[in-house]
């Protein structure tokens, strides 16, 4: 990683710290995650978390149980969070469009919590992880078949904080 890139990451992280950690400002945290692409090689970077470890797990239709693959990703997430205690996380749960709005909100909450419980079971302090549901309000893929639905049924771990002590 170049020194310049590193500096940019630090600045963006400091920008975040201007909000208190308790504020959980998700508009900023999204920037942090997607803006750090150049930092993939740095294992302590959000970019590494997002791209190398994987920031999301996928679910079966109408289910919130974790597949073996999902458990593998969450285990790596847990280890990363244990090693990088400057970061907190918000887990965003999502549903595909095949459901009513309210039920999908509740289902998204279930999925996010399912991921959270796994992280906690692997030693991450519960106080570091919040959950949020978007139901079917924020699809990633927009087609109306299983190839898209399978990617939309997800729980995404969004990092917040970092380098703030």
């Amino acid at each position: 990683m170049s020194g310049l890139t590193k500096a940019i990451l630090v600045i963006s992280a400091l920008g975040l710290s201007a909000c208190t950690n308790a504020a959980w400002d998700n508009s900023n945290t999204t920037d942090l995650n997607s803006g750090g692409a150049a930092g993939v090689a740095d294992q302590t970077s959000p970019a590494y978390f997002q791209q190398e470890i994987g920031d999301r797990v996928l679910f079966v239709v109408n289910e919130s149980g974790l597949t073996t693959e999902a458990q593998g990703i969450l285990l790596a997430q847990a280890n990363w969070l244990l090693a990088n205690t400057d970061y907190n996380a918000t887990i965003e749960g999502h549903a595909d469009e095949q459901g009513t709005r309210e039920y999908n909100l509740a289902l998204g909450a279930r999925r996010a919590n399912s991921a959270r419980e796994y992280l906690v079971s692997r030693g991450v302090a519960g106080s570091r992880i919040k959950v949020l549901t978007y139901g079917k309000e924020r699809p990633l893929e927009i087609c109306s078949d299983e190839s898209c639905y399978s990617k939309n049924r997800r729980a995404v771990t969004i990092l917040a904080g970092g380098l703030t002590g």
Binding site: S64, L105, R110
Partner: peptide, 9 residues
């Protein structure tokens, strides 16, 4: 209304 806590609504 509905309230969601700990994954339960």
């Amino acid at each position: 209304y509905s309230q969601s806590q700990g994954g339960n609504t």
